[in-house]
Amino acid sequence: MTAEAAAAAGAETAVAAAISVRELSVRFDADTGSITALERVGFEVPEGGFVTMLGPSGCGKSTLLRAIADLVPISGGAIHVFGRTPEQARRARDFAFVFQDATLLPWRSAIDNVRLPLEVGQRSGAIELNAEPEALLALVGLEGRENALPHELSGGMRQRVSIARALVYRPRVLLMDEPFGALDEITRDKLNEELLRIWRETGTTIMFVTHSVPEAAFLGQKCLVLSAQPGRVREFVDIGFAEPRTLGMRDTLEFVEVTAYLRRLLEEPR
């Protein structure tokens, strides 16, 4: 199943893979011995694609995203981001990471938080092609709030700032680890719709981890469903809704069928 899914994905997008994962294993050393978080995981994300990742808790979806971001060491297999290893890609600033918490510096205003990536790390020539921080705050719908401190913003606004911060050095890949998981449903719906707009406007490749089946179906062109213990690829599902997608689409029969299918994948044992 794993190999088939990877091969199918590979055949379709052999031209340009933004992220390619082959036979990936990640093991952690624990007191009780080593724990296998991910086993022989393989898939490819095409450039400019939007892939969501879904799975039961403890299936290692965050670990997979962190391995791509060079935050977790891998035990076997290979990860490539635009042909580079995760470490090379990190140093080249090929990707940005958005966490579940906005992770803003509380003493910096919104605009200064967005500027943070431009002040640290290796600022080589390639990174000087920055989008304007002001324009990015406008892109995420926060014009006029540039000078607000994080504690003056709502949870949804803080997450918007963190998305603008991720986009400030124009990464080619955006890795998002349950970014809207802590937000209420109404705010979450709004941000989902806006994330799709941002994705269309910037052409960034997005990989998005979520717990929510409707969110995974609504956002992803493809959805990577993982099974737990150890984490393996259950199925790499194509989601072929007409673009551009709207929130209203979620009430259509077509959408309900897709979410029902994803749910079945999550619930059924292999």
């Binding site: 940005a96 990536p117 640290v120």
Partner: peptide
């Protein structure tokens, strides 16, 4: 998580000290 963010940004220990640790 803040430290992970700084790692993704390839920030040095010195940058983490001056930009993050001292203020917090």
């Amino acid at each position: 998580q803040m430290l992970e963010l700084m790692r993704v940004l390839s920030a040095s220990d010195r940058e983490i000290l001056w930009k993050i640790r001292l203020q917090s």
